[in-house]
Design a protein around this nucleic acid. Structure first.
Lengths: 349, 349
DNA sequence: CGTTAGCACTCGCACGACCAGAGTGCTAAA
DNA sequence: TTTAGCACTCTGGTCGTGCGAGTGCTAACG
């Protein structure tokens, strides 16, 4: 930001008009339409000239000769970065968002799930929320609860109030004492470690050490160690994929499929998100910028949410590149803020 | 079953041919095609006459005059009940299924999730698995683990090795002793009760009693009681919805949407499934039989899976009415059996 | 020199005509 | 009862046409 590239004011206003109009109508927009609908005080002919220039510099493109123009990826980028006027979230929506987040039970997973649903509903696009796991957080302790004979509930407790549980079957029955023993040992080795540091190499070491130390059968220890691996923990909740089917750009089923497949594959979605999750503030990723084939027709508006300044996760909206950026950016920002607040209240005792 | 409605053999074979052909080609099938591809030893003209009869009795229908015929809902029903020859699951698939189920970690949820994925992959349709909760099972005990200040992990342990956990925030900090107290009380009241009996009325009673007994602030108790409600527990895992988009019947996006919406709405999906989940054996529900608008173009093949004869959940496949029933029925049956076996080994100590 | 009016030109698309192909129902003969 | 033959129907694809929207260019204008 800050840097304003050279573009004279009239061009800027025309690019704005084209983009706004195309976002609303999904139809290529011509000089006549602009002259009629937006009063720039100039004739269609002038607008035509300017549009030709804008096309030359890559901000607009023509689906085919003598149709109107539509914004190119570069055009959207410029629009998002320098032109668009953010549309504040309406009071009514603010209220609804706050209410939904408040009223939700005190369970984090449900809150997150509901957030995704709400975001999809309000944006009318697809939404996702990365469940909170603070890479900056720390491990606190582990508890092992015998459930019956050979089943043990592994409970991982992390920094600000996160809990993950895994049910594992062990090969040999372990006594409550033995389990407490292991739990204490693991807790002592892992406590206060930032989650980001708990790499598989460390786990291997610990596992080896644990075997020496306790003489337990490896399968048992293995099961516990495995449940320490965090990969799976950063779960993605998504909702509203079907909303995308309403968009004219996805009427063609093969286009719809490529983006729906993206959401169906946890892996793909996760790899996609991991690119932007670290960045502070609202990030807008347009079309091929995401570097993912299924996203070439889509844009993504994404923001991290924080608890006491520490980023805990991220959420966002996926829609066609022809997205209501000005509305969605503020929406995503507002929801992220509020989810952060709610989680702060849940987590920070 | 058992009852064989009146239909002479030739009609039956023609209905079979039409259905088989339509299932394979997705094109209305005419008398000529049948005469050519299936040697029934009669001419197209004869077949035409028979087909006209079959249409009169409602087994076939014509999309429009002088296109071929396609099976009606009634036709599919007859085909499924009396005509089709089940196609055994190939050895290779058997192996793959067994391997996938074995190799999966010992966590129930992951196993179930993976089962849905596998079933979708093998059937090339959409698949779902209802996570195991035995209505016939019994409650065993509850544990309350303090996580920090005001956060408590509620751990519900059920009959054969199921565990559900909920993280709840309480209004007032409770000591470990107090929690143990509550847990013991709740366990004593609920232990050995069949899950199907734990109705909300009972929970209300217990809650009242607990308040008297412990003098705890209601919000706390409320939170715990709420996590006892089982509704949410019967979770549905589904996968492969995008597979449906490959089917020619869903090329029209509005048709695709109605069924995708079904899967997106947990509620709808659940209400749909609850209808058939109780039935033993493989159930085939065709089109409007499901009584759900979004399903009118779809069929569902569903089977319960059992642990030691007790039904624990169900799984199934959803595809177009023009589904490869003969393949899917055996597949669903086989997977249900094997999932049951695997769970038996996991659960029964 | 920037702006604008006018105009010829280009496409895409919707519409209608047309034909080929597939399939039917009916009738009459085997 | 089955079958061959035939007239008829309907869909889907192809082709041509005209219309409308929009452009680029040129020349005139302030």
């Amino acid at each position: 930001m800050g840097f304003q590239p050279l573009m004279d004011d009239r061009k800027r206003r025309i690019l704005e008009a084209v983009t706004d109009d195309y976002i609303n109508t999904a139809e290529p927009v011509g000089s006549r339409t602009i002259a009629r609908r937006y009063n720039l005080g100039v004739s269609p002919a002038t607008i035509r000239n300017e549009m030709a220039d804008l096309e030359d510099s890559g901000y607009l493109e023509q689906p085919h000769t003598s149709a109107g123009r539509i914004p190119s990826q570069k055009g959207y980028r410029f629009y998002v970065d320098f032109i668009m006027k953010l549309k504040p979230v309406s009071d009514e929506e603010r209220k609804r968002i706050r209410r939904t987040l408040e009223q939700k039970r005190r369970e984090i997973d449900l809150t997150v799930e509901e957030t995704a649903r709400m975001l999809a509903h309000l944006s009318r696009y697809a939404a996702f929320v990365l469940s909170p796991i603070s890479r900056a957080g720390v491990f606190r302790r582990i508890e092992l609860l015998p459930v019956d004979g050979q089943t043990v509930l592994v409970i991982l407790i992390m920094d600000p109030g996160f809990v993950r549980t895994h049910l594992v079957t062990t090969e040999h029955a372990l006594t409550r004492q033995q389990l407490a023993h292991i739990a204490r040992f693991l807790s002592s080795r892992l406590a206060d470690l930032p989650l980001s540091r708990i790499a598989s190499s460390l786990l291997r070491d610990i596992k080896a050490e644990l075997e020496d130390y306790t003489n337990f059968i490896d399968a048992t220890v293995e099961a516990i160690a495995r449940s320490l691996e965090m990969r799976r923990e950063e779960q993605v909740y998504s909702d509203g994929q079907v909303n995308l089917l309403e968009q004219p750009e996805f009427q063609d089923i093969s286009k719809a499929r490529s983006v729906l497949e993206l959401f169906a594959e946890d892996e793909a979605l996760y790899s996609l998100l991991s690119g932007v999750v670290g960045d502070p503030g609202v990030t807008v990723t347009i079309g091929r910028e995401a570097g993912h084939p299924g996203m070439s027709l889509c844009s993504m508006v994404c923001a991290p949410y924080e608890v006491r300044g520490v980023p805990m996760g991220a959420l966002g909206v996926v829609g066609p590149t022809r997205m209501h950026y000005s509305r969605v950016v503020t929406l995503v920002e507002f929801v992220a803020e509020n989810l952060g607040d709610v989680l702060t209240r849940i987590l920070v005792t």
